[in-house]
């Protein structure tokens, strides 16, 4: 079972061209910040390396950081421009019993990252849900479409913090 420092050392030695940010001081869960365009190479290494062997992806969560500029759009509603969104990957090795948390930061206006579905099949529906509820685009995903909302929902991505409810959907009144 490897500690967070040992895993960080292994990553630094194998990927000297990638700029990682290590956060061992985060109080409850130390995490590693990985640049968005290198996430799939890093994850492939994490899964296949003999000493790390992270064979199971536990969770993939998307978060809307809501740290941009609040402006008013043409209907008078408050929306956000700029800012970031993050994705957190929790992974675990069943053989060695160690866990790791990786964070990726994306641009909020046009979020896009490579998909890890080819590495862990578990990520398939998690990424579809992140696309459905946040609007994050996953490159090379085998089947990226809405999963929880209706397929013809054209009013945006609901879990963003500046989402506005429509008045009617197919003849049914949506608010109370």
């Amino acid at each position: 079972m490897k500690s967070f420092e040992e895993i960080s050392e292994l990553l630094k030695n194998n990927f000297s061209d990638i700029h990682f940010e290590f956060h061992p001081e985060a109080k409850f869960e130390p995490y590693i910040l990985v640049p968005a365009n290198k996430i799939d190479t890093v994850c492939l290494f994490l899964r296949d390396n003999n000493e790390l062997y992270f064979d199971s992806l536990i969770n993939l969560s998307a978060v809307d950081d809501f740290n941009g500029n609040k402006i008013k759009d043409d209907k008078g509603n408050e929306i956000m421009q700029g800012g970031t969104m993050s994705i957190y990957y929790h992974m675990e090795s069943i053989k060695f019993r160690h866990k790791l948390l990786i964070k990726v930061i994306l641009d909020r206006d046009n979020p896009s990252v490579n998909s890890v579905t080819s590495i862990w099949n578990c990520a398939n529906w998690h990424e579809r849900e992140a696309f459905d509820l946040f609007g994050i685009n996953f490159n090379n995903h085998p089947d990226l479409r809405r999963i929880l909302m209706p397929y013809d929902w054209e009013f945006g991505h609901p879990l963003r913090k500046d989402y506005q409810n429509p008045e009617f959907y197919q003849g049914m009144k949506v608010p109370y």
Binding site: L148, M149, P158, Y163, N165
Partner: peptide, 8 residues
Amino acid sequence: EHGYHVLK
């Protein structure tokens, strides 16, 4: 109140 996908 906050269910965006629930029919009331």
